[in-house]
Design a protein around this nucleic acid. Structure first.
Lengths: 200, 200, 200, 200
DNA sequence: CATGAATGAGATTTCATTCAT
DNA sequence: AATGAATGAAATCTCATTCAT
């Protein structure tokens, strides 16, 4: 029973998750076989199963760590002064989607996670949590818009957050499936519809 | 029972599609086995395969006929006079989503179709087509908003349509996964953000 | 219960057998589905099953009627005067193989029947019978060769017939699978090896 | 039990091929199910599919390794001094057929391979190759017969080889299907017809 | 800690045959 | 006599997971 550093273990875990992400982005959760993951990770079946107890376990780990960078970006934006306009905010977020769809294909996992959430209660749980977090961001942003005088004092931040929530999945779907949209274009549309804080 | 009417054949097809829709809504495309469909349709394997040559064929047929009623509803809205406000429009659409999620579970298929589109080129094709149609509606609506004087004359309807596109997937995801949103609430948020044509 | 002439019935039977022969020659007994036969015969399932009680029944009928024309040809040769030399005889037989492989593909059925005979007792029975008939021809021919003074008086016609038997399957296989042999070439080889009755 | 020897792997492969040969000899390529092979090999489905990627793959492997021992025997005969007479040669070959029909049923596969060759292009390829090899042997033998003065100097070895080719399939069919022939009897017939080099 | 051979349930699809009309 | 929709058993092959080495 040789001793292995904590660090080594963590590296292996990440190696597996990276491989799985690549595979899942390429072929989806279902059409990716564990054999595909073994091959991409250059690891044996036994090795992978030492770190994750099932395929679902890998998916869950991936889903959990996937939402993190986005939430970080969003939170940053809230702390900016002056508050970014809706157009600016949307552009930053959309740009993040485009960037991360190049590096590792994280976004391609999002629609698959949504689909999984409808069918698998575990996935339902953590996808719901991630969505609630993101919507919470929009609701916080609505509060800040109110504070900036962009929205009426009696506006309902919950409702406003729910309305803005669609921007992100809307862009993801158009980017991944229709494939003909840029962050700038999306932001231009938002600026037209919600010209709060925009010059002119 | 040979020599049956054209109508009988069509009824059988629909019977199979209905059964498949129920199954897919319940367990997803992948976890639904053909046996599940046979059982739900109360038909034998051979009978189902007389009408559809593969499981994918059923999914495709379902996907194609699913987008139709929504597009009908959307088109109707464009012809109304006076033009519905963004809030009214969104409320009608969201209500349609809620209704059809009760009757037969059509909307539950949407996120699964998005996921499939990323992985299966055929699905990619028809999902893209459906999305383009829906976005086209929003772009037409943007033109009408311009004509109504709600948007500046130099606004880009393409960009505006792309921005509004997210409303629908955003509501679907919140409705199906987070489960705590009403058409009224969404519409209220939209009215706050885009008060075009709203009283006051 | 409409009356139908005996002749009509027989024509239908033959129509089905012809279709089956074409299908079997094309794809073999196993890869030919009954659906293929229905389509080729331009008849419904029920119609075909009125005339033959099973797929095996069709195969058996086909096998039985297939050997007949060849046996007819062989018997004719025995009655000729003077007796054909081995080379002449072989050439006639090989030419028959080539001809009938153009018209309807009967010969292509032979190797399939041999294979079936090893596996299916019924087929074993009638294929054995057909083979015994053909070998009987060669044994009769051996007797005639003896009478012509081409073989020693103490020769065993049974053994000679067994030895000559291979000429036909040998040609069929070379013709169908290797595909590079003519009746003339085969006959030339036979004349070289068994120059009985040949000039010079 | 990972990290097994190369030898272990090879043994497993052979174990599967042996089982398949037994099954195929018994029930034919088509009526043998993969389940039959699993049971005969005492291995699971997954195990078999680790070594062969399809049923056709097993058939191909079997066909390829089946022709080898016969070709070895034939080649040996060509090197003998003095050259075997046709009768002796045929007897040796026929005896090999009889022997190997006891040990493992290899010969029973031959007619099935012929049938398959007519229907499956892959099989067509390797069966043709094997046949060409065997016919090549007979053509070499014809050259040697010429050298021995048994055949005229102007004989065509190609044609002679083609004519002799039938001896082997002829014996196989009589042995397997008619079932009433011995190597001695076949050889006697050959000696009568082609008494080259025979005493007297 | 790592390997990878082995398992075996389960998935999709085909097809000979039947029988109500 | 003829139709052709329907049946349902069975076939091939995949794949997440385990465990002896």
């Amino acid at each position: 029973m040789p001793r292995v550093s904590e660090e080594h273990l963590e590296r292996r875990r990440q190696q597996i998750l990276d491989a799985a992400r690549v595979c899942f982005a390429r072929k989806g959760f279902y059409d990716t076989s564990m054999q595909d993951v073994f091959a991409e990770a250059e690891l044996s079946a036994g090795a992978v199963y030492r770190y994750f107890k099932s395929k679902n376990d890998i998916i869950a780990a991936l889903a959990n760590q996937t939402a993190v960078p986005l939430m970080g970006l969003l939170t940053e934006q809230l702390d900016l002064d002056p508050l970014p306009t809706p157009g600016d905010l949307v552009q930053v977020i959309a740009q993040h989607v485009v960037d991360s769809s190049h590096t590792g294909g994280i976004v391609r996992l999002a629609p698959q996670a949504w689909a999984l959430a409808l069918v698998d209660p575990d996935a339902g749980g953590y996808v719901k949590e991630a969505m609630t977090g993101i919507r919470g961001f929009w609701q916080d942003y609505a509060v800040r818009m109110q504070a900036a005088g962009w929205l009426p004092a009696d506006a309902d931040p919950q409702a406003v957050g729910a309305a803005m929530f669609g921007v992100l999945p809307g862009f993801i779907l158009q980017h991944l499936i229709v494939g003909d949209i840029s962050p700038e274009s999306l932001a231009a549309g938002v600026r037209t519809l919600m010209p709060y804080g925009e010059p002119g």
